[in-house]
Design a protein around this nucleic acid. Structure first.
Length: 492
RNA sequence: GGUCUCGUGGCCGAGUGGCUAGGCGGUGGUCUGCAAAACCAUUUACAGCGGUUCGAAUCCGCUCGAGACCUCCA
């Protein structure tokens, strides 16, 4: 294994901590996945890409990583009330489908979106509905430990009791007493002994569709239980990294900590990582505000806020260009800037293959790997690593233009390093749809047209040459002339 | 109201005490039949006020502004 010096910002200690996995060379990573009752929006892309980077980089460092990302397919209640309808059921009713049809439909679409973004599949993608037994067992264990109570077919976590021996609120920086003061009156809370108590198991109302038998009657698991149960099942009672969006810090992850402590008597997570939010007009992009733009809308450009379509790779690069703990503000201008920047990097990747080695090097190319590693080992600072790649682009172009030279050895090193970080670790590649759109017939036709234009230009028949160029531009095809001839591409 | 975070040049976005972040845009140039593309060069910053320090974007205080969580949310 590569000796690493990886530091991760731990949300719990609020400091950079040196990453030392519990049982090297293994590393366990659990990330909260989506609730599948709607298309993924730009906000969903952030944790997916952030932890895809973590996954890829840990693997690169030589760890044997088990990455678990759940699918939440048990509908959580819309309100905190017994009478509330859950999100998936509501969607199912509106679309006249089985709840599980809704789940399947949006799970498939989520997978498609993640594939487009070149997000690697997790090692295990467990569904909450497939782990009802594990969740029931966990409720039992918490009841046995005395940290929960049953009321009329529902089981609640006893936060006040738990707080006597543990600190409920240590992750999100709050305490139970303070939370009392600011707590709002919500319906359906009469059963709880304390407003901060949360449901571990919820009795299903007669009309509730998603329901399972349990020792407490027909019902469904509580909001926070699935992640505790499934992370323990697949990663053990102590695992390395638990990730998710900052908005899950409270109450979701706070509750997970309480559940795990109640069940196992100790924390299960060694490092808590939280990605920040994507904002639009300075505000969080989210379901509740209704100001979200789905990934599919980005890819098609079909949304009021979008000046045009943006490719999946542009979205990916846009997200990687900011540090995961900073907010990232969406704008058309920023996305177009990202698109241009990415093109520059990808162009350099191609140029790199054409470079010829010299006897000696006039420029340093060896430092790139160290600099990029240093950036990533500093809490996955992808924007700094990317800045180093841009510096390397200058070198690559200089060698191409014969302003600098590289020895064979240095050239190989530069190629390997550049490709390693850009393609393997950041997952940035040329758009696949480029090739998809260029079918064979089109290729041949374009070759013919470019040949005709070349002849026209050689005969100084500028009228014909320009006519071809302009006509193609109208068809959304751009001709790019260079010394070595002309190339073409379809505009996005 | 409670807890917390942030405020960097036209835009996005790194940076936590002294050393050019980077990208995009703009401007100038090279190339080109012209244009585009590509490449090269280059421009402006640290919300305000006060303090600590030889020295602060970076530490402390205050003011102003924005946001997040406290209910489902990535």
């Amino acid at each position: 294994m590569t000796t690493s010096n990886l530091y991760i910002y731990d949300s719990l200690t609020r400091r950079l901590e040196k990453f030392t996995p519990a049982t090297p060379p293994f590393a366990g990573l659990y990330v909260c996945g989506p609730t599948v009752y709607g298309d993924a929006h730009l906000g969903h892309a952030r944790p997916a890409i952030t932890f895809d980077l973590v996954f890829r980089y840990l693997k690169h460092l030589g760890y044997r990583v088990r990455y678990v990302r759940n699918i939440t397919d048990v509908g959580h209640l819309e309100g905190d009330s017994d009478s509330g309808e859950d999100k998936i059921t509501k969607k199912a009713r509106l679309e006249q489908l089985e709840p599980m049809e809704v789940v399947q439909y949006y799970t498939d679409r989520y997978h498609d979106d993640m594939d487009s973004l070149n997000v690697q599949k997790p090692s295990i993608e467990p569904r909450a509905s497939g782990h009802i037994i594990e969740q029931i067992e966990m409720v039992k264990a918490i009841l046995n430990a005395g940290y929960a109570y049953e009321v009329d077919g529902s089981v609640y976590f006893d936060v006040r009791k738990y707080n006597e021996q543990h600190h409920y609120g240590k992750l999100s920086g709050r305490n139970v007493e303070e939370m009392m003061a600011g707590n709002r009156e919500l319906e359906g809370q009469e059963e709880k002994r304390h407003p901060a108590d949360f449901a571990l198991w919820k009795k299903a109302s007669p009309t509730h569709l998603m329901r399972w038998p349990s020792p407490w009657g027909e019902g469904f698991p509580g909001w926070h239980l699935e992640c505790s149960a499934m992370s323990a099942k697949y990663l053990g009672k102590e695992f390395d990294i638990h990730g998710g969006g900052m908005d899950l810090l409270f109450p979701h992850h706070e509750c997970e900590i309480a559940q795990s402590n109640a069940t196992f008597g100790h924390d299960t997570v060694r490092y808590w990582m939280h990605n920040n939010m994507i904002t639009i007009n300075g505000q969080k992009m989210g379901k509740s505000l209704g100001n979200f733009i789905t990934l599919r809308e980005f890819f098609s450009g079909n949304h009021q806020e979008l000046a045009r379509a943006y490719s999946p790779m542009t979205i990916r690069f846009f997200i990687l260009q900011a540090h995961y703990r900073s907010t990232l503000d969406f704008s058309n201008e920023a996305l177009q800037a990202a698109e241009k920047g990415l093109q520059r990097l990808l162009q350099a990747l191609e140029t790199l293959d054409q470079l010829k080695p010299s006897d000696t090097s006039t420029t340093d190319a060896a430092g790139l790997a160290d600099k990029c590693h240093a950036a990533l080992q500093d809490d996955f600072n992808s924007p700094v690593a990317i800045a180093h790649l841009f510096d390397a682009v200058k070198t690559i172009n200089a060698v191409r233009d014969r302003r600098e030279t590289l020895s064979g050895e240095d050239l190989k090193k530069l190629r390997d390093t550049f490709r390693l970080f850009l393609v393997d670790i950041f997952g940035l590649t040329a758009e696949k749809d480029d090739l998809g759109q260029k079918d064979e017939l089109l290729e041949e036709l374009m070759e013919l047209i470019l040949e005709l234009r070349k002849t026209a230009r050689e005969n100084k028949d500028w009228e014909t040459a320009d006519k071809l160029r302009d006509a193609l531009q109208h068809m959304n095809i751009t001709i790019k002339d260079s010394k070595d001839g002309s190339t073409w591409e379809i505009n996005h």
